[in-house]
Design a protein around this nucleic acid. Structure first.
Lengths: 125, 125
DNA sequence: ATGTTCGATATACAAAAGTATACTGATATT
DNA sequence: AATATCAGTATACTTTTGTATATCGAACAT
């Protein structure tokens, strides 16, 4: 298990390996932006078709959904399957990696919950 | 411990509590953007002064550093201490919450490492 | 022939995020 | 008087991200 703190916790300690930095920015890119997490959440719930994702992801436009799905596919987080029926059926599914992002999401929720409790003076609710 | 999967893993299961969604977006906002993580990393290493953060964070401009530090301070991730010496000394330090973000970073590195191994065809290195 | 569904794309625009470059004011040093 | 340091700010710009609205093409259904 990587431990970021061990690498950057002291001035003279070992430098954080470059591969960790790359892994970190991969992850940040994978979930950054307005729509990535809502889409991943819908996919985790079992929503798999373009139309259904449009409905499940409130206020997203088809342009953005198309763009985000392409990015997720390029990043091997989502796979796109085409079934040659009529009308054509296309399914988007999370890959193993895609499903595993739930672990990152959990740690983010944990931090956010504790942080909200600690920062009691926060104004935005 | 929160478990996102438990809430969004099934069609008929309970909805993900709104507070979890808020906690999640708090966390995402706290670390999103080009400079937040590099700045937090420098602070974790013990770099505390504006000038030193400028040097430690490659290519950042004073305008961006100032802006980001203000945001981190508003989010109770960083605290700013003024020492009335001459010349004036100002120190930025991570709060407890700020230090705890290392846990999120670790889980992001973990995911990123495994994902890089799995997505062997990735072109960007 | 006209309309409907699915899975999108096209064009134009607005807003947010980030960059480049120069400058400020207070104090101290030479 | 000129110069340097610290901690920023000011102004103008470019790039990236997101929105709004309309439309496309294939395959049916009526």
């Amino acid at each position: 298990m990587s431990d970021f703190k061990d690498f950057i916790g002291s001035d003279k300690g070992p430098q954080c390996p470059r591969i960790y930095i790359l892994a970190l920015s991969d992850t940040l890119n994978a979930i950054s932006g307005k729509w990535k997490l809502p889409i991943i959440a819908a996919l985790l719930r079992g929503v798999n078709r373009f139309k259904d994702l449009l409905d499940a992801t409130e206020k997203i436009t088809p342009r953005m959904l198309s763009k985000e799905l392409k990015e997720l596919e390029m990043n091997s987080i989502v796979e796109r399957k085409v079934y040659n029926q009529t009308p054509v059926l296309i399914e988007y599914r999370l890959t193993k990696s895609g499903k595993d992002i739930a672990n990152v999401i959990d740690s983010m929720i944990d931090w956010g919950m504790v942080h909200r409790t600690q920062a009691i003076t926060k104004t935005d609710v």
